[in-house]
């Protein structure tokens, strides 16, 4: 139980040395490491907190932008819808106007086509009628009828007005040898002589006429020279009738079209 004072002093020194060595090799390195780690963790936490704050801010910003974008989108959509509605109405109006115009044009074209058709039909009918008439007259034409025609021609020649007679004389006097007489059938000599006599009487000359047959005349006599012609024939009558009817049809068709266009407007 005695205290060895040398041992006490030695242990005291040992203890102080141990304190220094452990400070050097244990406490300081360990505490430094712990502090460094804590600092690192704190830095990481701070960094994470900063990033979180930034992320929150960005989130808020993004949210705000998103809301603004939504509002803009809605506004644009409303504008576009309104514009589309206006455009649609305009297009419908334009289409209606165009359709109306087209309908009017088509109606006009249809009416014109109808008028043309009617005109064509009338012309064809006329042609047919005159053809039938011409055929019928050709069928009943005969020599006796030709004789009657020659008589009628002679009477007609004699009964012509003074002005006409003078025109006839002027035309036939210049070329007395080239007077041509056309008939549907060959005229008998008697008839030829009577015609020659009547012409000579009218012209006060002795002229010899040339006689020719022309079936297109149907029935009648045609006398021509130097561009001047005197005729009495069914063909002439029919041509005059055809001319008159065609002129009348044209006159009738014109006011009708005018009336139609007035109605459509």
């Amino acid at each position: 139980m005695d205290i060895n004072w040398f041992t006490v002093v030695a242990q005291l020194i040992n203890f102080l040395i141990l304190v220094w060595l452990l400070k050097r090799f244990l406490y300081k390195p360990i505490l430094d490491a712990v502090n460094k780690r804590e600092k690192k963790i704190m830095d990481q936490l701070k960094d994470a907190a900063d990033k979180k704050t930034i992320a929150e801010q960005e989130k808020e910003e993004f949210k705000k932008k998103n809301e603004e974008f939504d509002q803009q989108k809605k506004g644009l959509m409303d504008t576009v819808v309104a514009e589309a509605a206006t455009e649609k109405n305009q297009l419908i109006e334009t289409a209606k106007a165009e359709a109306k115009g087209l309908i009017f044009k088509m109606e006009e074209a249809a009416k014109a086509a109808q008028a043309n058709e009617n005109k064509e039909l009338a012309q064809n009918t006329q042609k047919q009628v005159f053809e039938i008439t011409r055929k019928a007259l050709s069928a009943i034409a005969s020599l006796s009828l030709e004789e009657q025609s020659a008589d009628t021609f002679i009477k007609h020649l004699k009964a012509s007005k003074e002005e006409e007679k003078q025109q006839f004389i002027d035309a036939f006097k210049s070329h007395p040898d080239s007077i041509l007489v056309k008939s549907a059938f060959e005229l008998p000599t008697k008839q030829q002589d009577e015609i020659t006599e009547a012409v000579n009487a009218l012209l006060h000359t002795e002229t010899k006429l040339q006689f020719k047959t022309a079936p297109g005349i149907i029935s009648g006599i045609e006398l021509s020279t130097n561009g001047y012609k005197v005729a009495w024939s069914f063909s002439e009558y029919l041509s005059a009738l055809e001319e008159n009817i065609s002129g009348e049809t044209r006159e009738k068709a014109k006011p009708n079209v005018k009336e139609d266009s007035d109605v459509s407007n």
Binding site: N4, T7, A10, Q11, N14, I17, L18, L21, L22, F25, L26, P29, I30, D32, A33, K36, R37, K40, I41
Partner: peptide
């Protein structure tokens, strides 16, 4: 007493040195 004390000191210092020579500061 002294010899044992030195032994204990040696154990403490050597083990501390062995561990703390390769300290890491990460997780």
């Amino acid at each position: 007493t002294l010899v044992t004390t030195w032994g204990v000191m040696l154990v403490l210092i050597v083990s501390s040195w062995l561990v703390t020579r390769k300290l890491r500061t990460d997780i």
